[in-house]
Nucleic acid binder design. Structure first.
Lengths: 193, 193
DNA sequence: TTGTAAATAGACAGATCAGTCTATATATTC
DNA sequence: GAATATATAGACTGATCTGTCTATTTACAA
């Protein structure tokens, strides 16, 4: 059974990344030990280090996995809810509401990674920046396709709203209503473009 | 020389809290060890534990200190920039810009504390919630005094903007322009009240 | 001066951490 | 069946962590 140690998919690697993501989400990065992760994943210690050279590398892989998982989910959810670009600009806030109101919501893994590890971890900062850029592109392209003037500015505005609702939901809960609040403001911005 | 161990001010206690705040800001809570803090503060290990029973208690004290420091500074800055309630609703975003653009800005210590320590630390969650509530009250009272309709809703909206700009600045920098972005949206919301 | 309380340096305990090593087991491919 | 590669349990290292203890020193107050 192949797998060049850290690249290709494998059952153990999948369980490892899933367990690590759940643990990091629940307990933070520095607050989560390797032992808890491998116990959850049901794998041996060396299996982790055969796939990843270090905990830092595992964190980066978790963020990459989270990026794909989250953007795929959002894309599917938005497409299922709206087809017109202008509608999709707002529909993403309904999807956001589902996430913020979900049981295990604990804020954005990327923002938290920058806050906790930050400065010294260039790869983590880049992963977070790339992830947020995905939303910016989502907004900008839908804004352009909707014929909205000032698509760049609008994209930045909507990204700020999305981030704001996420942070508010982390600290004080009420994720659904914070997402609705963001959506209402977004509608105003799209309309007054 | 008095000081009932953990309550009243003392030079050592002040230096300790200042050093702890700077270290937590730069390296996170779990990522910062006691040794680094006492070395920066230039105090003995036991001096810390004479003032605070645990690292957790120190963290809570740092958050309390930060709350007073930050809200005092914002109050003074806003009052120096605007006197009319309606103007103060927007002036706080200029003050925010100064903070987000400052050298050592590393996101909101309260949001980061919830993200990193969260769940298990009730006192930390409460401190963060209380801190954010200060902004909400600031917005709400100024909105009421400005005669704006729907002051409660507006307060929540402006708080979301403030939080969004802060998170955006942490991940991608550009604090000044993110604060200006939030201010522009805020102006729209205040106007369309 | 004498009494009281705080601050000091530094050793220490006990736990936990990331990461390494070994020897065994398992499963696939030729 | 033989060869190859991965997964396994678990011991182990060395570092780091929070928190404790002791013995000394400093400094203020009566």
């Amino acid at each position: 059974m192949a797998a060049p140690a850290g690249k290709r998919p494998s059952p153990a690697r999948d369980r490892l990344l899933a367990a690590a993501q759940a643990r990091f989400n629940a307990g933070g990065y520095n607050g989560t030990g390797i032992d808890a992760i491998i116990a959850d994943a049901g794998i041996a210690r060396m299996t982790l280090y055969n796939h990843f050279p270090s905990k830092d590398a595992l964190i980066e892989a978790v963020l990459q996995r989270r990026h794909e998982e989250l953007t795929d989910w959002i894309t599917r959810q938005v497409e299922a809810r709206a087809s017109a670009p202008a509608d999709r600009l707002l529909a993403i806030f309904d999807v956001l509401g589902d996430w913020l109101a979900s049981e295990d919501f604990r804020g954005c893994l990327f923002v938290r990674a920058v806050g906790e590890l930050g400065i010294s971890h260039a790869a983590v900062c880049r992963a977070a920046s790339d992830h947020k850029d995905w939303y910016r592109r989502f907004f900008r392209e839908n804004a352009r396709n909707a014929g909205v003037a000032g698509a760049d500015r609008l994209a930045g505005d909507l990204l700020l709203l999305l981030e704001g609702a996420t942070a508010r939901a982390l600290v004080d809960g009420g994720g659904r209503s914070e997402a609705e609040r963001a959506k209402r403001i977004a509608r105003l911005l799209v309309g007054s473009g």
